[in-house]
Amino acid sequence: MADADISPLTAHLGYWLRLVSNHVSHAFAGKLEGRGVTVAEWVLLREVHDHRSISPSRLADRLSLTRGAVSKLADRLIDKGLLGREPSPEDGRAHSLALTADGRTLVPELAGLADSNDAEFFGDLTPDDRATMERVLKSVVAGCGLKTPPLL
């Protein structure tokens, strides 16, 4: 193939998606770091927030993570006082994860950071452009069968 036949990087949608994604993700990670939380920890906290308590195995399934990865994240969040383990109501040998009072206070603050990060990068889009972008991206996700939430 001749050099003239090689498409430039900028000819690929993936290039533009990655450019935007890297900047959005890096900015959000920095905002979370200021609150002492990683993106992966935020995702786990946000998922636990939607349940009164949830088993680590169910959480692993919902986040497409291994149980070991959930355990490591949970341990870090327990050490930070944001998550706690409680006996499972269904099985006394098992445990569930639940937010502590500090965790319940922090999650809405972190959600606000996510909202402001979104506004920072996408606030200049018209509502129609934003809806179109969301529709197109969701179509790609569905068409490719993508399921794993972005944790990094």
Rank of each mutant, 00 (worst) to 15 (best):
L113K: 06
G34W: 09
W42C: 09
L73I: 00
D5N: 09
T66S: 06
L83A: 05
L146F: 07
R85H: 04
G103V: 02
D115G: 03
R35C: 08
G112E: 08
T148R: 11
G84R: 14
G92D: 11
L9I: 10
L65P: 00
T148S: 04
E134Q: 15
L45F: 08
L45I: 03
V140C: 12
K72C: 04
L65Y: 01
P8A: 14
V107A: 03
E47L: 07
T132Y: 15
L151R: 10
V136K: 06
T100G: 01
N117G: 10
N22G: 10
G92L: 12
R67T: 01
L32C: 14
P127R: 09
A4W: 10
V141Y: 08
A40E: 13
G143S: 07
K147M: 09
L77E: 01
G14M: 12
V70Y: 00
D75N: 06
L19N: 08
L9M: 07
T10A: 10
R76T: 11
E120C: 12
T105Y: 05
L59P: 01
P127L: 08
R58D: 05
P149W: 02
V136G: 06
G36E: 04
E86F: 11
F121T: 04
V20I: 13
E41Q: 15
L65G: 00
R58W: 07
A29S: 15
R52I: 04
P127S: 10
R104P: 03
V24L: 12
V43C: 02
H26T: 14
V136Q: 11
L9P: 08
P56Y: 01
T132E: 15
L45T: 04
R58N: 07
L44K: 05
P108K: 09
L106F: 08
L32D: 12
R35I: 03
W16G: 04
P8C: 07
L65A: 00
F122A: 05
R46Q: 07
V43F: 03
G123E: 11
S55I: 02
R130A: 13
D79A: 04
V20D: 15
K147G: 14
R18Y: 13
R35V: 04
E134A: 15
K31R: 14
P89F: 01
T126L: 13
N117E: 14
R67E: 01
S7G: 04
A119P: 08
W16C: 05
K72Q: 07
N22Y: 08
S53F: 07
A142H: 05
